[in-house]
Nucleic acid binder design. Structure first.
Lengths: 258, 258
DNA sequence: AACGAATGGTGCGCTTTCCGACCATTACAT
DNA sequence: ATGTAATGGTCGGAAAGCGCACCATTCGTT
């Protein structure tokens, strides 16, 4: 076992918790997950167009080949379609496939396909929910702390209205969009990917339980409380509203999956 | 520019904020940073021994070659020494080198060395401080929420005492250790690397400003408040104590670097 | 109808990383 | 002394990823 040395008396600590893989696996799967995030979290909606391959590869710091492999996997899974020629590009399909996709090595040719995710442990559920609470509540509080420009206030209100007006099938995506916008308004670029990631994990859990119409109505009311608190600049109120909002789906998830 | 599609009216959103490189650079530099974290954050103290190369490579999900390159770079920089033979291994040196190390391509042979970090932008400072506030305050609150075992309470108290008793030169490391232990006590494995990372970033900033003895005394008093609040199970008190603690170094950093 | 620009599609060589096997060294056990 | 187990050190082939150049297709413009 790891020995933390003798200079200080403190016993062996959490060294193992830091010595873990950084990147999930390889550049290819990493890229697939990234693109899946932008699609499933609604940052690029149905019918929307992805940046050109060369530009996108540059954004993600991967080679164009790797990016094309990832796009190919997403195309096979039915998430995107590519058209070439001028004003062509890669587009998100109108109706997204259902189910929770994850990667598996392809059976032939060296490419890969998307398959169902196997299972989820109670520990992973708890991990996700706790982390989500910390990040989202903290983001709401910080968003209400800083000054917001007129444009930002407008965008926030617009996202709230979209979320209320959207149909049930669009709800998950529009909801993610609103939460992600709040994270963006905090003004800490590092925060956005973290919340995006934890929301992806949360959505995977939510996909396993039924969607109840009454919950949507309730969520929309809470969204309004959150947005109002942020716009008024009340950090504690925003944090509390977000906490209650989070607690709702936490109870749901613990009830169905715990 | 990215078009988010026409199905919903919401304008183009933060797509760019998600489409960014995942891993910092390559496996080698990633590994160096990881090892540097465990050393500089005090998870493995001076004189401490790293896990065997084969095991460590497995932990970090990199090949043994890459790991050895990273260890070699750290050895060149004076952080570790390797001894071979039975009961040998790679050990952290007794006196850590000073300065803020970062990677640069080696001049010969394909290896690399550690050099000084160039600069830091105000935006990056703000990003780090905001993220730190969210994570550390949230962690303190959550740590005070859950039940703690006797062993955990003991470790927490021990870390607090170590921190108070440590000399000025050890303070940064022992301080990080205490904060990281709090994160560990939350029980959300995903949280620990996040706090470790934001602490590394914070420490890099703190290394640029003078260390004042009075601040250490003050910090230790605040540490005691935080730990007591956690042990007593008062989430709001723990959060507030942590917030005040954070605010201290925030003011310091903004004053010197802002 | 012809041209040009933007885009996806394809092929090739180079570097990095990975994987497995084997060698060299050391300290403890016998 | 001898043996053995655990460790760092070294080598060679395989795979993944990268960077670049070039091809093929489709649109708008002229």
């Amino acid at each position: 076992m790891t020995d933390t040395g003798g200079t200080d008396a403190a016993g062996d600590l959490s060294a193992d918790l830091l010595l873990r893989p950084g990147k999930v696996v390889n550049a290819f799967e990493e890229t697939v997950q990234r693109l899946l995030q932008t699609i499933r979290l609604g940052l690029i909606g149905p019918g929307g167009r992805l940046p050109a391959e060369r530009e996108l590869a540059s954004m993600l710091s991967v080679s164009r080949d790797t990016l094309r492999d990832a796009i190919g996997a997403l195309a096979d899974a039915g998430y995107v379609v590519s058209r070439r020629g001028r004003y062509g590009g890669t587009f998100v399909v109108d109706e997204l496939p259902t189910g929770t996709p994850v990667m598996r090595a392809g059976s032939a040719g060296g490419s890969a396909v998307l398959v169902e995710r196997p299972a989820v442990t109670p520990a992973e559920i708890e991990d996700t929910l706790v982390l989500r609470s910390i990040l989202e509540v903290g983001a709401a509080r910080q968003a209400a702390t800083g000054e917001l420009s007129g444009i930002e206030r407008e965008r926030l209100w617009q996202a709230l209205e979209d979320c209320s007006a959207g149909s049930a099938e669009d709800y998950r995506r529009l909801d993610s969009r609103l939460h992600l916008l709040i994270a963006e308004l905090v003004g800490s670029p590092s925060l956005v990917p973290l919340i995006a990631d934890v929301r992806m994990r949360t959505n995977e859990l939510l996909d396993r339980i039924p969607l109840i119409a009454a919950n949507i109505v309730h969520s929309n009311e809470q969204h309004e409380d959150i947005v109002k608190a942020i716009l008024r600049g009340h950090p504690d109120a925003a944090a509390q509203a977000m906490e209650e909002h989070i607690a709702g789906s936490e109870a749901l998830l613990r009830g169905f999956l715990g």
